[in-house]
């Protein structure tokens, strides 16, 4: 993995090859307001095309498969794949029932969407790190960051949407006065109103931020570890040393892959459950 790109980089800049390799992999395909040298976005009005492409691709895949399954449901003799989808649905529905007070028909589909989308976007991390960028460079695309959830834009987009829903339902269920009261009197009672406002505001803002940063951090770190493992075989594939380094890389890669499979599932699950919990808190009258 990464041999070709890396060796090219190593030829070009000697010792700086490793840094450049990682840097290259962590750079989005940016259009719009981008820095021409570093290829990083330099302003708000820039688009990470790779993030958008894979995000929408996976979303389309979910819609397509969901439509296929949803339009050929058989209640009496479920096919194998229908069973599988039913299992996921049942799992999500159980989570919602266990953590969400009351009833809101939006919560369960929202939770399912988050779980599926996040899981599948995370799953892109398990595709060998150099495979898609190499194919892309063959097509003349210089930068390609495959995993949308390693882009803070994606995770923040989801967590801000969830946050908007939290605010909306807080206002709807508690009423504007009730919501304001929560800010005024929440942690310490009515004698510490200024402190309360600061505390509750931080608490509320921490919700979307922690959601976004947790997912982003985990996946970014995971991606980075894959890159580092890919470097093991890359830097030292000279002569007999390859006999040692190459198996090590394979073993480490496999180990991290299996561990990461757990991580990506867990992160998707955590994002889903926390969304349900936050929305559940928005739906309770008394804080």
């Amino acid at each position: 993995m990464g041999d070709r790109v890396l060796s090219e980089a190593a030829h070009n800049s000697g010792g700086g090859g490793t840094v450049e390799y990682i840097q290259h992999h962590l750079t989005n395909l940016c259009v719009g307001d981008c820095d021409p040298v570093t290829h990083q976005a330099s302003g708000f009005w820039a688009l990470h095309l790779d993030t958008i492409f894979f995000g929408y691709l996976i979303a389309a895949l979910i819609v397509f498969v969901g439509w296929r399954v949803g339009s050929s449901l058989n209640p009496d003799k479920p096919s194998g794949f229908q069973n599988f989808v039913e299992m996921i649905l049942d799992f999500v529905s159980t989570q919602v029932k266990d953590t969400f007070p009351g009833h809101n028909p939006l919560i369960a589909p929202l939770a399912l969407t988050i779980f599926l989308w996040v899981f599948l976007m995370n799953f892109m991390d398990l595709i060998p790190v150099d495979l898609l960028p190499m194919l892309a460079s063959g097509l003349g695309i210089p930068y390609l960051k495959v995993v949308p959830t390693t882009d803070l834009n994606t995770t923040l987009a989801m967590s801000l949407t969830v946050f908007a829903l939290v605010v909306f339902y807080s206002l709807k269920v508690k009423g504007p006065v009730g919501y304001l009261k929560m800010f005024l009197f929440h942690p310490f009672g009515k004698f510490f109103i200024p402190v309360n406002i600061v505390m509750t505001t931080i608490e509320e803002l921490a919700k979307p931020l922690s959601l976004a940063l947790r997912l982003f951090g985990n996946l970014f770190a995971g991606e980075l570890v894959f890159l580092l493992i890919a470097l093991i075989g890359g830097t030292l594939t000279v002569g007999a040393a390859a006999l040692f380094w190459f198996p090590l890389q394979v073993v480490l890669d496999l180990g991290w892959l299996i561990f990461h499979l757990l991580v990506i599932t867990l992160q998707a699950f955590i994002f889903m459950v926390l969304t349900i919990v936050y929305l559940g808190m928005a739906h309770t009258e008394e804080h």
Binding site: A41, G43, I52
Partner: peptide, 26 residues
Amino acid sequence: MNITATLIAQMIAFVLLIWFVNKVLW
């Protein structure tokens, strides 16, 4: 790792996906 308009695009994707998942699958 800047926040860019990608955020908006992904938000749209997310909202649309929720709507579609609810409509065709859930």
